[in-house]
Amino acid sequence: MMKYLSLIIILAGAYLAVPLQFGGNDYVIGIVVSALTIAGIAVAWAMLGNLGGMISFGHSAFFGVGAYGSALLAMNAGLPVFPSILAGGVIAGVVSILTMPTLRLRGPYFALAMLAFAEIFRILAIEMRWLTNGSGGLLSIPRLPTVFGFDFGSRLGGYFVVLTLVLLTVFVYWLIRNRPEGLALRAMHDSEDATLVVGVNATRLKAAVLVVSAFLTGIMGAFNAHYINFLEPDYAFNGSWTTLAIVAAIFGGYKTLWGPVAGALIVYLVDQFVFKAIMPSGHQLILGGLLAAIVIFSPSGLLPWLASRFRKEAGDAAHP
């Protein structure tokens, strides 16, 4: 009951209070949109990390592919923007099939093989000039449309779209997590034989999670392309899309549903509004420090840490 109530309060706050309070301030809304974009990648990344047991350093590949895929479809094939965002996700999902051989690799090897893929995609985006216009980038990518008189192409419109996308991403994650497939995936890292003898095909499940994670990341990239209306390889395939998502997910707690979202909002907003004001250059130093500190002091992340603190205090109150 508490859970539903707090969810309703958060949703009401996100859809009503934030726009009412900051709707007129494009600067603030712009930064919140960026934070939510990172939150979406962080959730998709954490899904692969938590369910698949795979830490990827290459999610910027899927972000970039989704961005370029959607932008090119809208520009060259004249697809309306919302369907082309969906198509961008699908393209990223399909492209992730190329990276599937890496699923055989263990922990750090997988992480860095994905990084190599991301680098390859970035170089290809620069080199395939006939398609991507190379380093020159794509200009005037169609913006989000006006529907029923509401301009989704405005900063505030973008906010509503990205907010909804992030919530849908969390919803998809939640659905998968609670299906038998999600349960089996969660159990797989620690109990491989146990899952095998009851009939779990680990490879196929991992591959499926990779595709879904790539699809969701691609959607965020596609949204971003139509939101900023401009793309170039070094932006769309920038490693910091992965870096920020990792920091956010690890900070919030990548094994929890809302940890990556909370992590992205806290980390990015504090970074932009506080650290950046204090030290205009090199403010990401603090993000690196946060990441290191969280691994050392609370490896499961902020949300689980808060939850255990809360439980402890509730327990202390109940039994003085």
Binding site: I55, S281, G288, A292, V295, I296, P299
Partner: peptide
């Protein structure tokens, strides 16, 4: 690092790398 040494050492050194890069930048 106490748990999940393999992955957490990767993340920890990644964090340190970000710190060093930005420290050098400053």
């Amino acid at each position: 690092i106490r748990v999940d040494r393999e992955i957490n050492s990767l993340i920890l050194t990644f964090g340190i790398a970000i710190m060093l890069t930005n420290g050098i930048l400053m």
